[in-house]
């Protein structure tokens, strides 16, 4: 095992072998990784984290591929963290996001890492924020985060990104879908992808109506709607400019500091929740293991009874 200091230096020097080993330990929730994360946290570069979310198949990976290419034209070193689901039955996963990004596979200045959700809800993986810390310490900027293909309620990406993109494509539902709460509220930029399709304009105007219903002060960022079609190289420059405009906006009036405080708080809360849940799980299993031996007469009676017992054993003790 390399010494902590060697790993630390490797990360700051962008050593891919060391970084991928650390990212692995982070993903496996190896306690040794936390010691290193603690040390590299203050060394992070101020890189913009851009989260992309949206339903499966709308073209998130392809869009990231195109945005990475644009950033590479400008000479930026780009990071990508792409999350795909783990099986609820076997824990296995097939991670296929980087197939769409294979033109960057031999480019050492593009670091792409696939993550399995490993049971975490909300569209991210438990290790996502820690992985971001590693990539920021390595100096990658910007960093794109691709969520699991999401439904209507997976909004966690908002809490870890500077800039949130909701990617949609025409043909996924009528105008009622855009009125619903959840994913349609979180975007800094709405992307209507596959804009070469006929109904793209309809979707665009539905989203614009949605934005128009809210009152924005001059202080607020007014979400933008961008039409893109990577296959026809359409809208990519506009999208890149909108992403940069949001970064400029964040860098004014102390907004970025406030945003990063929220992101750091999220990291604290996430780590605490994971740690506490882990501690509780064993106790809970013990409690339930005994309980299932009793006949379930009424789930409400039983859960009330169990909760009381649980409170006595765990909460009141501490």
């Amino acid at each position: 095992m390399p010494k902590v200091q060697a790993i630390l230096e490797g990360i700051l020097k962008k050593d891919a072998l060391i970084a991928s080993r650390l990212l692995r330990a982070v993903d496996d929730q190896d306690p040794k990784a936390v010691e290193i994360l603690e040390k590299i946290y203050p060394k992070r570069k101020p890189s913009q984290v851009i989260g992309l979310t949206g339903p499966p198949g709308v073209g998130k990976s392809t869009l990231i591929d195109a945005l990475v290419a644009k950033e590479r034209e400008g000479g930026a070193c780009v990071g990508v963290l792409a999350i795909d689901p783990s099986s609820p039955f076997t824990g296995g996963a097939l991670l296929g996001d980087r197939i769409r990004m294979s033109r960057h596979a031999s480019d050492p200045d593009v670091f792409i890492r696939s993550l399995a959700s490993r049971g975490r809800m909300g569209g991210l993986s438990a290790s996502l924020q820690d992985s971001l810390v590693v990539m920021q310490a390595m100096g990658y900027s910007p960093i794109f985060v691709e969520t699991v293909g999401t439904g209507q309620d997976e909004v966690e990406v908002l809490r870890v990104s500077h800039t949130t993109l909701v990617v949609l494509a025409p043909g996924l539902g009528d105008s009622i879908q855009s009125l619903k709460a959840g994913i349609m509220e979180i975007a800094d930029i709405y992307v209507v992808n596959k804009a070469d399709k006929d109904s793209a304009r309809t979707l665009q105007s539905e989203i614009e109506d949605l934005i128009g219903m809210k009152v924005y002060t001059p202080e607020d960022w007014q979400p933008r709607v961008i039409l893109t079609s990577p296959a026809y190289n359409q809208g990519l420059k506009e999208l890149q400019e909108a992403i940069k405009a949001h970064w400029t906006y964040l860098n004014q009036a102390g907004r970025r500091r406030r945003k990063e405080e929220q992101i750091a708080k999220q990291l604290v809360v996430g780590r605490l929740q994971d740690g506490i849940l882990h501690l509780l799980e064993a106790k809970l299993n013990h409690l339930l293991g005994g309980a299932w031996k009793d006949e379930i007469l009424n789930p409400y009676t039983m859960s009330n009874k169990l909760f009381e017992r649980f409170k006595q054993q765990v909460v009141d003790e501490t």
Partner: peptide, 14 residues
Amino acid sequence: RALRDAGFEVIYTG
């Protein structure tokens, strides 16, 4: 697919 079903994390390159 079989490796996924065996519980491994598989990165498929295409």
